[in-house]
Design a protein around this nucleic acid. Structure first.
Length: 424
RNA sequence: GGAAAGAUGGCAGAGUGGUCGAAUGCGGCGGUCUUGAAAACCGUUGAUCUUCACGGGUCCGGGGGUUCGAAUCCCUCUCUUUCCGCCA
C-alpha cells in the first residue's frame, strides 16, 4: 500500500511511476484518492472538534457534582446529549470515508522505480547480464521429466495417486539431491550473515494482508477454512511478518533472514506445456532471503542480493542470465525486480529460478514495519526479498545440463553434501 | 476437548467510575561526577490522526454496550497461562 502522504506531496511523480506499470488510469485514480483523503480529513476535523467540546463538558459536570451543584450539572447534560448524536453520526461517516479511501489505496499497485523499463510483456524485459556457457548436450539428451523416470528419482505418477498433479514424490538420490541443495543454499546464506529462520507453513489472514497476498490473491493460496489459515506460497510471508507492527532500531539494519520452506501454490489458471515435469508445481521447496533495510540503502542492498544469487548459480555452474523486469511484468507489490533465468538445455528455453525484489515501503506500510531514525522520528522501513533459490527448476536444469550417456553428474559443490558424484 | 485465571507503555508491574496516557521499578537517551568506566545523583523517555503553529482527537488484547464521564462496569470474540485429557 502506498503512503497517502507520498501521494499528497508527490502526486505528479506517483502518477508517472504508476504509468510505468501500465496503470493507464493512474491520474484519475490518484485524484480520486486525494479527494477521498480530503473528505476524510474534513470529517476528522469536525468529529474532533465535537469530541473536544464533549470532553470539556464531561469534566465540568464532574466538578459540579463534586461541588454539589446538581442542578447546573444536569443542565449541562442536555448539551452533551445533542453532541452525542452528532458525534455518532460523524464517527459513522468517518469510518465509511476511511474504509473507502483504504479500499482504493490498497488496490493501487506499488510505484515502480523510475529506472524500470517501460513495457508490457516478458519480451520487454531488459537482459542485464549473462553468465556461463550454454552447453551442447550429447546425442540423445532428453528433458528432465524423462530423466526423472529413467533413474527413478522423481515420481510424478505416485504424487498423482497420493495427492494430485503437481505434488511429486522424490525418491532415493532425487530426494538426497533436494536435501543437499537446501543445505547448500542455507549454509551459503548463513555464511553471508543471514539469520536462519524456520517459519510456520500456515499463516493467518493478517499476515496475508501484510505482504500483499490478500485481499486479492487468496485464490492462489491453499486455505484451511476450519481455522482461517492459509498454506504459505513462499517463506517471504511468515518471515516478513515477523516484523508486522514492529518498530526496529536503525542500528539493526540491515536485518537479514534466510528461510527454507515448502511452498504451496494453487496455480489456478496455468496449464499447458509450461507445467510439464518440475516446471510448475503445487508444492515445492525454496530457500528465501528476506531483508529489512533503511530506505536510503535499499537499492544498494538489492544489488548485493542480486550478486549473492548470481554467486550461487555460478557455484552450481549453471548457465544463466539476469533480467530486469519491465513495468508490465513486475508484480503488484514490487518497485523493482530482477529475475534469474537458467538455461534448460534439453527444453531449449530459459527457466525462471529466482526473483529478487525491492518493495520499498509498500509492504512495510501495510504491516506497519517502522524504525526510529536519527531524529527520533518513526518512519517506514524498506523490505526486500529474493529466492535463493527455488529448487524444482534448479533440479530440472542440473539434471538436463549435467546429463551424460553414463548418467547425471552432480555439481562439485554439492558432492560433499550428498556423498555421491553421479546419478545412474 | 474439559476447568480455572489472565491480557495495561521496550520489559516487569500498580491502577476497580472523573483530577489516568496511566504510579513505581528496570531498560533507553541526555547530563553531573571521573583520566576513562562503573556506581551514585539529576533530567528525559509510548503510538497514531489532524494543524503552518498553538492546540485538539484516538489508543490500556479486538469489537460492541451502559454512563454526562470507562483502563476500571456489562456483553462478545481472540489469544495466553495453569491443571486434566490426547499426543510426535
Amino acid at each position: 500500500m502506498l503512503q497517502i502522504q507520498y501521494l499528497r506531496e508527490n502526486t505528479r511523480e506517483a502518477i508517472e511511476r504508476l504509468q510505468i506499470k501500465n496503470v493507464f488510469d493512474a491520474e484519475s485514480r490518484v485524484e480520486e484518492i486525494l479527494l477521498l483523503d480530503n473528505n476524510r480529513r474534513e470529517l476528522q476535523h469536525k468529529a474532533d472538534t465535537i469530541k473536544a467540546e464533549s470532553n470539556a463538558i464531561a469534566k465540568e459536570i464532574g466538578k459540579l457534582f463534586k461541588e454539589g451543584k446538581t442542578v447546573e450539572a444536569n443542565e449541562k447534560k442536555q448539551r452533551t446529549a445533542e453532541l452525542k448524536v452528532q458525534e455518532k453520526e460523524l464517527d459513522e461517516q468517518l469510518l465509511l470515508a476511511e474504509k473507502e479511501l483504504n479500499e482504493k489505496l490498497i488496490s493501487l499497485p506499488n510505484t515502480p522505480h523510475i529506472s524500470v523499463p517501460k513495457g508490457k510483456t516478458a519480451d520487454d524485459n531488459e537482459v542485464v547480464a549473462s553468465f556461463g556457457e550454454i552447453p551442447t548436450l550429447h546425442e540423445g539428451a532428453v528433458p528432465h521429466w524423462d530423466l526423472c523416470s529413467k533413474y527413478d528419482i522423481v515420481d510424478f505418477e505416485l504424487g498423482n495417486k497420493i495427492t494430485g498433479a503437481g505434488f511429486p514424490v522424490y525418491k532415493g538420490k532425487g530426494a538426497a539431491l533436494q536435501r543437499a541443495l537446501i543445505t547448500f543454499f542455507l549454509n551459503s546464506a548463513v555464511a553471508e550473515g543471514f539469520l536462519e529462520i524456520q517459519p510456520p507453513l500456515m499463516i493467518n489472514e493478517a499476515s496475508g494482508l501484510g505482504t500483499g497476498q490478500l485481499p486479492d490473491k487468496e485464490g492462489q493460496m491453499y486455505q484451511i477454512p476450519a481455522d482461517g489459515f492459509y498454506m504459505i506460497p513462499t517463506a517471504e510471508v511468515p518471515v516478513t511478518n515477523i516484523y508486522r507492527n514492529v518498530i526496529v532500531q536503525e542500528t539493526q539494519f540491515p536485518i537479514k533472514h534466510v528461510a527454507y520452506s515448502a511452498c504451496f501454490r494453487r496455480e489456478a489458471g496455468s496449464y499447458g506445456k509450461d507445467v510439464r515435469g518440475l516446471n510448475r508445481l503445487h508444492q515445492f521447496d525454496k530457500v528465501e532471503i528476506v531483508v529489512v533495510e533503511h530506505p536510503d540503502k535499499s537499492y544498494e542492498t538489492l544489488e548485493t542480493m542480486k550478486d549473492y544469487v548470481a554467486g550461487l548459480l555460478t557455484k552450481l555452474k549453471l548457465p544463466f542470465r539476469i533480467v530486469k523486469l519491465c513495468g508490465g511484468d513486475i508484480s503488484f507489490t514490487s518497485a523493482m525486480t530482477y529475475d534469474f533465468e537458467v538455461w534448460s538445455a534439453a527444453q531449449q528455453k530459459w527457466l525462471e529460478v529466482s526473483s529478487v525484489s525491492n518493495f520499498e515501503t509498500f509492504q512495510a506500510n501495510r504491516m506497519k514495519l517502522r524504525f526510529k531514525d536519527k531524529d527520533g522520528k518513526t518512519r517506514l522501513a524498506h523490505t526486500l526479498n529474493g529466492s535463493a533459490l527455488a529448487l524444482p527448476r534448479i533440479v530440472a536444469s542440473i539434471l538436463e545440463n549435467y546429463q551424460t550417456p553414463d548418467g547425471i553428474m552432480i555439481p562439485e559443490v554439492l558432492q560433499p553434501i550428498v556423498g555421491f558424484d553421479k546419478i545412474g
